[in-house]
Structure formats: C-alpha cells, structure tokens
Simulated scan of single mutants.
Amino acid sequence: MTWPEGYGRRILAEVDSTMAEAARLAPSLAGPEWIMARGQTAARGRRGRHWVMPEGNLAATLVMRVSEPPAIVALRSFVASLALFDAVAAVTGQAGGLALKWPNDVLLNGGKLAGILLESSGANLAIGIGVNLAFAPGAEEVEPGAVRPVSLMSETGVRVTPEEFLEYLAAAYAGREAQFTTFGFGPIRTAWLDRAARLGQPVVARTGRAETRGTFETVDDTGQLVLKTPKGRVRIPAADVYL
C-alpha cells in the first residue's frame, strides 16, 4: 500500500486524544496530516461522549485546511465514511456485511465497527476516526439502545495493526477526497446511499428529547436524513439514529 502524496503522517505512543493533538498542531501544519496514537487517555466521541480505546484499535485524526462554507465542509463525514468502507473492504478482501449508518458510523454484520467525529475551527477541519480492529467495547460501555460494538478481528478473523490499517485508510480517503473536491457531493452521496444501512426501512431519529420515527427514504443533497412519516416527509440535519 502506497502512502498518498501530499499527506503527512505522525504516529504517537500516547496522547490525550488525537483530536486535541490535531487542534494543537493545526496552525503549524503545511498540509493535511494524519495523526495516530497507540493509546489515548481522554478519547471522546460525538456529543462529548467517552470513547473506549483498547490497545490494538485505531485512533486517528486527519487535520486539514478547508476553504468551503461550513455546510460543504460538514459533508466530509460522508467522504470519511466511504473511505472507511473502502479501507475495510481492501483489508478483508470483501465488502459483504459492511454498511454505513447515518450520519457517521460504519457497521459490520449489524454491529458498530467504527465511528467518525468532525470538528472545525476557522479554516481547520479535524476528522477523528476510531476503528475496533482488535477489540470491541462491552455492551455495558455503550449507551442503552445503541448498536452493539464489534471488532474486525471477531467478525472476520482478520488481524491488522493500526499502523497497517492507517495506510489503507489514508489511501482510500485521498481518493474519495479527490472525488469530492473535483465532482462535488453528488457522486459521494450516490456511493454512500448504495452502502446505506436500513435504507427503505423503519428507523428512529433522536435529537435531545425529540424523537422522529419513520422510513429511511434517502439522504438529500445537503446531507440531511430524510424520513417518510405519517405526517409527511421530514428532513433531519443532525440526530442519533437507532435501528
């Protein structure tokens, strides 16, 4: 696997979180850079939730400068999701059992394999990625009703180190990023929907105390989840989706 041209790489033994390290390094970077840590002491997921990071799993952040409006920048969650799908398929030699859960999870055999977190500050974007390569958190370590965690090793028998997986991921992301910047969100959206979990099936979207139940109809051209409900079509910009 060839490391993509123009992307930096920084491997750390331990850090509080790769997202925090990305924020510290961003002002001094000349170009996009992947930051990977073998251990994290203060990892976190979406909405500030604690992220469990056993040794042997991937914890990495891509930090890059962006110039598009925030709504366009946010669409890179779909770019990253597709890159993760591509990387896992390349490592295992098959795409069977893989699916993408809106807005930013990768599923394997119905369980959560990976998660993505986007944070932007000014012209800098950080894309944090966690992948259960070797171990999956126990059910007691995730919130009630959440998709059960799984690992690549337990589901496929494939053993890959975080450093090896990062090479596949970086190459896949570079390809999808080039597609996004050249052709826009259209081809990314089409490819994402082709891999979407529960498309055409009932889901529940929760935002704070609000809950919307409906059929997952599509993702629109702004990345919003579109549900078909008894009250009509509902567009949801951000939520936690329960299957």
Results as ranks from 00 to 15, higher is better:
residue 105 D to P: 02
residue 44 R to N: 11
residue 53 M to E: 14
residue 101 K to G: 08
residue 98 L to W: 06
residue 89 A to H: 13
residue 77 S to W: 06
residue 69 P to G: 12
residue 76 R to K: 15
residue 123 A to Y: 00
residue 99 A to N: 09
residue 120 S to R: 02
residue 35 I to A: 03
residue 87 A to V: 10
residue 102 W to C: 08
residue 133 L to Y: 07
residue 117 L to I: 11
residue 36 M to T: 10
residue 95 A to H: 13
residue 106 V to E: 08
residue 34 W to H: 07
residue 122 G to V: 02
residue 66 V to W: 12
residue 73 V to M: 01
residue 110 G to V: 02
residue 37 A to I: 13
residue 122 G to P: 10
residue 122 G to A: 10
residue 41 T to N: 04
residue 58 L to N: 03
residue 129 I to P: 07
residue 110 G to S: 00
residue 119 E to H: 03
residue 52 V to A: 00
residue 136 A to D: 08
residue 61 T to Y: 04
residue 59 A to S: 13
residue 80 A to H: 05
residue 79 V to R: 03
residue 61 T to G: 09
residue 88 V to E: 01
residue 67 S to N: 11
residue 64 M to F: 08
residue 44 R to H: 13
residue 76 R to L: 05
residue 60 A to T: 12
residue 92 T to Y: 02
residue 76 R to P: 05
residue 126 A to M: 12
residue 95 A to V: 09
residue 135 F to Y: 15
residue 105 D to N: 02
residue 91 V to Q: 03
residue 49 R to G: 14
residue 142 V to E: 06
residue 88 V to K: 10
residue 36 M to G: 05
residue 129 I to F: 03
residue 135 F to V: 15
residue 136 A to S: 10
residue 59 A to G: 15
residue 54 P to R: 12
residue 76 R to C: 08
residue 114 A to L: 10
residue 35 I to V: 15
residue 61 T to A: 01
residue 74 A to S: 13
residue 79 V to F: 12
residue 41 T to V: 09
residue 44 R to I: 01
residue 85 F to L: 05
residue 65 R to E: 14
residue 36 M to K: 02
residue 54 P to L: 04
residue 120 S to W: 07
residue 37 A to K: 10
residue 143 E to S: 13
residue 116 I to D: 03
residue 102 W to S: 05
residue 62 L to W: 03
residue 118 L to V: 09
residue 48 G to I: 07
residue 119 E to P: 08
residue 130 G to D: 02
residue 56 G to I: 13
residue 133 L to D: 07
residue 68 E to V: 07
residue 109 N to W: 07
residue 44 R to G: 07
residue 121 S to M: 05
residue 39 G to N: 11
residue 49 R to W: 03
residue 92 T to W: 05
residue 82 L to H: 06
residue 74 A to P: 05
residue 48 G to H: 01
residue 125 L to T: 13
residue 70 P to C: 05
residue 64 M to G: 04
residue 107 L to Q: 09
residue 66 V to C: 05
residue 106 V to Q: 01
residue 93 G to F: 10
